[in-house]
Simulated assay, not measured.
Amino acid sequence: MTESRRILVIDDDEGIREVAHASLELVGGHDVTTAGSGAEGLEVSSRNPPDVILLDVMMPGLDGPATFARLRQNTATRDVPVLLLTAKAQETDRRRFADLGVDGVLTKPFDPLSLPEQVAELLGWDP
């Protein structure tokens, strides 16, 4: 079995948060925390930096790229891997996200049964 990791899911869509939480905890065996906005995610991750952050791109207020920039400015979260959650999977979008310096991109909608495996694969975690 894979090692349990602490994962923070930041997404303004409650349904996405619930599905990702259930998938990563029940299927992946990870310890999952969620946040409903970029600002809440910054606060939660600063207090207790997770092993990885799954970050929605399109959110009201502080969107994913702006939240990512602030995560990189904070010494507590600077080195935490960030995977973007996005419905925008066009090649130009993927290049733009890669240019930001994120560790990977997950496309929504995602398969809840394979999400933990996708996260592990993107981050090079042992299966």
Results as ranks from 00 to 15, higher is better:
Glu40Trp: 06
Val27Lys: 05
Gly104Trp: 04
His30Met: 12
Asp11Lys: 01
Val105Lys: 09
Ala66Thr: 11
Thr67Trp: 10
Glu43Ile: 01
Ala35Pro: 00
Val119Pro: 00
Arg17Lys: 07
Ala87Val: 15
Gly61Ile: 06
Ala87Tyr: 02
Ser114Cys: 12
Ala120Val: 06
Asp51Asn: 12
Phe68Ile: 04
Val44Pro: 00
Phe110Met: 05
Gly29Ala: 03
Thr75Pro: 12
Thr75Ser: 10
Leu115Cys: 07
Pro50Thr: 02
Ala89Asn: 12
Leu62Cys: 02
Leu113Ile: 08
Glu91Asn: 14
Pro60Val: 04
His30Asp: 14
Val57Arg: 01
Thr107Met: 08
Ala76Asn: 13
Lys88Asn: 12
Ser23Gln: 05
Glu91Met: 13
Asp103His: 15
Val52His: 04
Pro109Gln: 03
Glu14Asn: 07
Met1Glu: 09
Arg70Asn: 03
Ser4Thr: 14
Asp103Gln: 12
Thr92Asp: 14
Asp99Gly: 08
Gly101Gln: 11
Leu115Ile: 07
Arg96Lys: 14
Ser37Met: 11
Pro60Tyr: 08
Gln73Pro: 04
Val27Trp: 03
Thr86Arg: 12
Glu43Lys: 07
Val102Pro: 08
Leu85Ser: 02
Ala66Tyr: 09
Ser37Ala: 11
Gly61Asn: 05
Val119Gly: 00
Arg70Ile: 01
Glu117Gln: 15
Glu3Pro: 00
Val9Met: 07
His30Phe: 13
Arg95Asp: 09
Gly41Leu: 07
His21Glu: 14
Leu71Asp: 02
